[in-house]
Design a protein around this nucleic acid. Structure first.
Lengths: 242, 242
DNA sequence: AAGTGGTCTAGACCACGTA
DNA sequence: ACGTGGTCTAGACCACTTG
């Protein structure tokens, strides 16, 4: 299973790959407990310290979660985490406010060149396009467009129509076994278009924060494209640089 | 020096505090090599593994830097790091471009209430205010205002007038022994004011990205306030969420 | 009491950079 | 050749959670 000897890849790195593959292949699901450090060590014929080092690194990457006295678990990317890691808008006092969402539109279309490129699809491949508006403190504040590849999201928005939940990443995980693990955002200031202005109840041409996000899985495959237009009079985008 | 026994703070955490204090007190300076893991272990009467664990955590926080075969060093927050950690503007292709800067103004004034609050000063305390414009790819793209507390920056902008270098964080470290370690940013979209528009050669009222930053030292004291207005037609703010 | 993660040790050997 | 950090081991004991 693991290779040792001079010049070979360190054991703990091999173990990391092994654990990641178990999760990527859905052999272990989010929320599942994984074997104890001691048992993994026996199984892989390494010392506990080596297994521990591998697990530590995955815990730091939010892939696994340790609970003392209980065990180690595949991370559940629940509401708290989604809000903490993937929602950076706060009110002017710096407080995070839970958004609610209202779907305006949900339909199939062919990917544009740019969309195909960003999602690593072939141009012309089918995608799902969702338009929605999000309220913060009961005021419409964000309008956004979400692009998903038809595969593997085929089932989405068919039986249940446009009745989508607020926290989509939870849906991706529970319904499609896709865990969003990281994302890249590009942020610009732009003028509100007529329709956006109408929805957000602001003047046409008002400045809006445009956030283009590509969301990635654990194995760095892009699976969601999201463009958000956010009014920043009563809110701002909060970023911490460490 | 270190306390052991039941219920006491873990050794490696005590060692982390010890190392941080050596750096905060300027006993070890940026760029300095620190004693080897083995020597530190002997000195503190713990095992190498425990020292190693402490150092590992500081390396992850960018406080120390390890070089195999050489030793462990207090991190130098040089141009590369400043650019990597604290400069998030890229051109539309996603490439980081080195900005150059031109100081417009540099003077003393009393802190506003908000400035005093953010810098943890008393209202009315003296601050230094620097206005400058930054060029990206030879085009004026960012206008920004920097607010620094008089203490300990008293010397700044006196002998050398307004002849300030491009990378201020390097100056803070070398001239004032202040290492910027982390920062909080608040980002909004706003309309360009008349004067900003003139400097950036855009229309008044054009959307600009406003970035308000509070920069913190290793011990989390706020030491710089920076408000940047950035034109985002040819550039964007890049953020990675892990 | 049993099982889990969390800390710590003492020592081995490898990989790397300098001299 | 030497000293550094990097990996790995085998085992001890502590802290926490559950039965």
């Amino acid at each position: 299973m693991l290779t040792t000897g001079k010049g070979s890849i360190p054991l703990y790195l091999q173990i990391i790959e092994l654990l990641i593959s178990k999760i990527s292949k859905a052999e272990w699901l989010p929320g599942d407990i994984i074997p104890s450090e001691i048992n993994l060590a026996k199984e892989l014929d390494v010392s506990q310290g080596t297994v521990r080092k591998a697990i530590t690194e995955l815990v730091e990457n939010n892939v696994l979660t340790r609970k003392q006295g209980l065990g180690t678990f595949v991370s559940n990317h629940n509401i708290d985490r989604a809000l903490f890691h993937f929602f950076h808008i706060t009110d002017n006092d710096g407080h995070k406010v839970l958004p609610d969402s209202q779907v305006l539109n949900c339909r199939r279309k062919k990917a544009t060149k740019s969309e195909a490129h960003k999602l690593k699809l072939k141009p012309g491949d089918e995608v799902i396009k969702i338009d929605r508006v999000r309220n913060l403190s009961s005021k419409p504040t964000i309008v956004e467009t979400i692009i998903l590849p038809e595969v593997p999201f085929t089932r989405l928005g068919k039986e249940d129509g446009c009745d989508l939940p607020n926290m989509l990443y939870e849906l991706y995980e529970k319904q499609f076994g896709i865990t969003i693990h990281s994302a890249e955002e590009q942020i610009r200031a732009v003028r509100a278009q007529k329709q956006q202005a109408k929805i957000l109840d602001i003047d046409e041409g008002s400045p809006l924060l445009m956030i283009e996000r590509v969301a990635l899985t654990l194995d760095r495959r892009p699976v969601e494209l999201r463009t958000s237009y956010c009014s920043t009079t009563k809110h701002y985008y909060q970023n911490t640089l460490l």
